[in-house]
């Protein structure tokens, strides 16, 4: 009797999770299916789900509609450089907050946390003018510089650096290590797992970034892939076929999924679990 009840719970559990997975994956699978249909094949209703003549020609069409190579380069450049700089400066600030005692430390740290409640977007108009004065409109740096050090990143990495034993830091200081040396040679190697999981999250967020590139970049060949894809519906003289639009979305979604799965394989253990410590 008891056994029956337990398998009942486990049945509900698995059914629920399978439903969740279907909901999670279906839109993406639907996209992939349509993206390999020939233009002219029906895309409405259930007819969308059968592929009669799979083709990659939609992807070819994409290359004619948008400057994919420069867009891809722009996306990669901002994603990679944005992630690396953020990682470095957040870890550095997190290190200072975690391992140094200095006047105003707690107040400043609470201030950092409090800024999470303000959205930079609210100042978008003057920010646009500031960027113009700095000659950063249409420059990829406009996407990287403002977010070199973020509050969330500092908060998250500080939590990890707190766990680095003080003795190790003291020992290397006695050995004559400089402050930066301690950070670079002692702290960074220890918090590598945290850096890796934070890096994968940041990279995904940067890759998916839409508002700031939309605001700061104004030229087709300066766009990131995301902005170009968002404009696909009107790119082909207002009449881009659905299959071509979805080929475009596939081009932005699949790489980030592969990247994420790769990171999952890479970090065998819990990965993001423990991202925020209670």
């Amino acid at each position: 009797m008891k056994r029956m009840k337990f398998s009942g719970v486990s049945f509900i559990l698995h059914t629920f999770m399978i439903l969740v997975i279907i909901v999670c994956l279906f839109p993406v699978l639907w996209m992939c299916v349509i993206s390999i249909k020939t233009v002219g094949e029906r895309v409405s209703g259930f007819a969308a789900l059968t592929v009669l003549h799979p083709t990659l020609s939609n992807f070819g069409r994409l290359f004619e509609l948008i400057p994919i190579w420069s867009n891809l380069y722009n996306s990669l450049f901002t994603t990679i450089l944005g992630t690396l700089t953020t990682l470095f400066f957040c870890a550095l600030a997190g290190f200072a907050f975690a391992k140094y005692r200095f006047p105003g430390r707690n107040a400043l740290f609470y201030f950092v946390i409090a800024t999470m409640m303000i959205s930079a977007e609210a100042g978008a108009i003057p920010l646009f003018i500031i960027m113009r004065r700095l000659h950063l409109i249409n420059s990829l740096w406009s996407l990287i510089i403002p977010r070199i050090a973020t509050a969330v990143g500092i908060f998250y990495l500080r939590q990890y650096i707190l766990d680095v034993p003080d003795e190790m830091i003291e020992a290397s200081r006695i050995d004559g290590c400089s402050d930066f040396g301690i950070f670079w040679r002692i702290v960074v190697p220890i918090i590598k797992p945290a850096l890796a999981s934070w890096a994968s999250i940041t990279a995904i967020v940067r890759w998916n970034d839409f508002f700031w590139p939309l605001l700061f970049l104004n030229k087709n060949d300066k766009y990131t892939l995301m902005v170009s894809v968002s404009m696909l519906p009107v790119s082909d003289g207002l009449a881009t076929p659905w299959s071509v639009i979805l080929a475009g979305t596939t081009m932005v979604i699949i790489p980030s999924i592969l990247f994420y799965l790769g990171m999952q394989l890479f970090q065998r253990s819990g990965s993001l679990a423990g991202a925020v410590k209670g």
């Binding site: 400066f89 550095l92 600030a93 290190f95 200072a96 907050f97 140094y100 200095f102 430390r105 400043l108 950092v112 800024t115 303000i118 930079a120 609210a122 100042g123 978008a124 108009i125 003057p126 920010l127 003018i129 500031i130 510089i145 403002p146 977010r147 070199i148 050090a149 973020t150 509050a151 500092i154 402050d179 950070f183």
Partner: peptide, 24 residues
């Protein structure tokens, strides 16, 4: 040294968040 390490955040916050918000 600690001030130097945390300064990037505060400089960026000033230039790209605080000033824009006051300006707004």
């Amino acid at each position: 040294i600690p001030y130097l390490f945390i300064s990037p955040f505060f400089v960026l916050f000033l230039v790209f968040q605080l000033i824009p918000i006051i300006w707004t």
